[in-house]
């Protein structure tokens, strides 16, 4: 029993540590958020400011840019710890590499992706998203974005020992994001067209659940490999 209590303690300690690091100076939290804001505001310049056009692409643009912002922040997920050797220490912790992988992924979602979700309604306003879309934009982001952190963690772990592995990681991770993107945007579009969004949300949740099953396992395997 004491061992179990100790394990959860370690798990949350790692989560807290990573959240703190993400929001300290030079962390990825603010950077991802700023990128999200700036990149979305580029679209009206690209396609023109007509409200109908923006309303049509709003959900898709916000989802795609949220995905890219998440991707940008991922390449540092394990790298700093790998470079300064903390990863070797973390590997010896009582929760094992799989626990560490899960804790760091959770911390990434809370520190970097959750702020994007909170910011999304503001950007939806800039993008003229129809009113009925707001709620389900946030709901779909809440259900779907954990999959972005989870699958991203696999890519980040696989490329952790690669110098300037960020581009390589995008190449590995982006195809894995397609289902989440499809169902996430699908849910919002369904509501706007007054159709039922629940099938989309259910499938979105299913993809996230697959991520929860696959990711800690694969991420831990990849991290162990980099420490060999």
């Amino acid at each position: 029993m004491t061992a179990a209590v100790k394990s959860t303690g370690v798990f949350w300690a790692v989560v807290r540590r990573d959240i703190k690091l993400a929001w300290s100076q030079g962390g990825t939290g603010t950077m991802a958020l700023s990128f999200f804001l700036i990149a979305v505001s580029l679209f009206p310049f690209g396609v023109g400011p007509e409200p109908q056009m923006l309303a049509r692409i709003a959900a898709g643009v916000i989802w795609v840019v949220a995905l890219l912002a998440c991707l940008l922040s991922l390449d540092r997920l394990f790298q700093a710890d790998f470079e300064d050797g903390s990863l070797d220490d973390l590997a010896l912790s009582p929760i094992g590499m799989m626990g560490i992988a899960a804790a760091k992924t959770l911390a990434h979602w809370i520190s970097t992706v959750l702020p994007l979700v909170v910011m999304a309604p503001l950007l939806a306003m800039l993008m003229q998203l129809p009113n009925e879309g707001y709620l389900f934009l946030v709901v779909s982001l809440l259900i779907g974005t954990p999959a972005l952190s989870l699958f991203g963690a696999i890519g980040a772990a696989l490329t952790v020992s690669v110098r300037r592995g960020g581009v390589l990681m995008s190449l590995l991770v982006l195809p894995l994001y397609i289902p989440t993107l499809i169902f996430g945007v699908g849910a919002v579009d369904a509501v706007i067209l007054s159709a039922d969004p629940t099938p989309h949300l259910a499938l979105l949740g299913a993809v996230t659940l697959v991520g929860i099953v696959v990711s800690p396992f694969a991420t831990a395997a990849a991290l162990r490999l980099s420490l060999e």
Partner: peptide
């Protein structure tokens, strides 16, 4: 590393295929 990637792909490719077809 590529072996891990290939196995992750095996899980994901059917999901991607299904979702794209749904799409």
């Amino acid at each position: 590393a590529t072996s891990i990637l290939a196995l992750v792909g095996v899980v994901n490719l059917p999901i991607i295929k299904f979702s794209v077809e749904w799409w």
